[in-house]
Structure formats: structure tokens, C-alpha cells
Amino acid sequence: MKTLIIIPAYNEQDSIIKVVESIKENCPYCDYVVINDCSKDNTPKILDDENINHIDLCCNLGIGGGVQSGYIYACKNGYDCAVQIDGDGQHDTKYIKDVIAPIESGEADVCIGSRFVTNEGFQSSLSRRMGISFLSSLIYIACKAQVKDVTSGFRAVNRKYIELFSKNYADDYPEPEAIVLSKLNGAEIKEIPVIMHERENGVSSISPLKSVYYMIKVSLAVLICRFYVKRGGKQI
């Protein structure tokens, strides 16, 4: 199965090489592409010097637009499976094969690497876990998708959902919305346990101040998505 690993990167000069190296080591059978979202640090230079397969976005699009570029690239180049992982080293690449496995066997259309199945590894702060469990319940009510780690950016999707996401993907904080969108389009979603690390370098894209906006925006997005997409029907 032709698999592409999408790695969105914004100012990740300290971690991007490590991530790419570990991908080459742990999953040599996968292709990868780094999406450089107009990094202001040395990331573009590193990507060029180390001859890493990458796309330089000509304007900053944010996480959603960046990841979507990866899906468009996967769509254009005929990949059957796409995996997205963060460029900051939080996601351990040795779990990529576990995330791909259900897609490969046809058991699931979307497979999410989750911290909260076995509750091992880095678990994030209490307030964030509360927020995540609230969103998780909301998503369950909205579309009956049982996902615990709704904000996890570690996921694999098959061809149908590569196409869906290349046309339709939220701009900021896209992960929970993507779950609802794929579920309402008939996806079988599976969650598998992974261990995540605390980020080594750089700052999270979600500061405490933004988290209120995050909760309101995502809750609203989930509800609106619920009302405008018919289950198993066509996309928005």
C-alpha cells in the first residue's frame, strides 16, 4: 500500500531532522512530505540542505491549511493511505505501523493514535484533559463517534478520506472537526493506543489564552457540522 506521512512544520528547526530520521528508520516503506508553513527560523534551510522531501507554502496558512496541502499532495500522487504526525517530536514514529495497520486490513477508514486508551506516556495537563473529554462527549452526541483523544494529530486515513480532506478541512484546530466530518461521511473510526512525548522544543500552538477560543470554536464547529451534513450523505 502506497503510504504518505504528512509532517506539518512551523518553526521546528530543532526537531524536524530527528522526526524525519526516525521515520526513515522506523518506516522505510513509507514516503513522507514535510509541509513548511513559512517557518521564520532555519527550518527551510535545513529542509533544503538535508534533501528532505518538502513543500514550502508560499504564504502562512496555519495548521489546517498546511495539513490539507499534504492531503492534496497525497491525492495528486495517488497515495492509498496518508498518516499525519506533528513535526515537533511529540508523536513517536515507531507507532506509525500500528496506526496504518487497521487501514491496511480495511478494518477502519480513519485510525487515530490516542493517549487515553491505555493512559500511558505524556497525558497533558488536567484542564486540557477536561477540555478534551468534554469535546469527546460532544462529538459522541453529535455523530456517535467514540473517540477519546479527539485532539490527537496522529492519525491515518484511507484513500476516500484523503480525497475528502483535500477538499474539506478546517483552518485552525481542525482535528475534532475532521473526526465529525469523516464520521458523518460514513467512516469507520478506530482508536489505537500510542505513547506521546512532551514536546522537546518550540511552543504549543495553543496557549492558555487561546484555549477558551478553542473550546468555543470547536464546539460550534462540531454542532454546525452535525446540522449541515447528513449522515452517509454528501459533503458540505
Binding site: 518538502h54 513543500i55 514550502d56 507554502l57 508560499c58 504564504c59 496558512l61 491549511g65 490539507q68 496541502s69 492534496i72 499532495y73 495528486k76 483552518d171
Partner: peptide, 13 residues
């Protein structure tokens, strides 16, 4: 504009 940036960037590559 978003779609434009994405496609231009991929074409550029």
C-alpha cells in the same frame, strides 16, 4: 486564496 496557495506551493515543488 487558501486553495490557490496550496496548489501553487505544490506546483512550485
Amino acid at each position: 486564496i487558501k486553495t490557490l496557495i496550496q496548489n501553487v506551493s505544490i506546483l512550485q515543488k
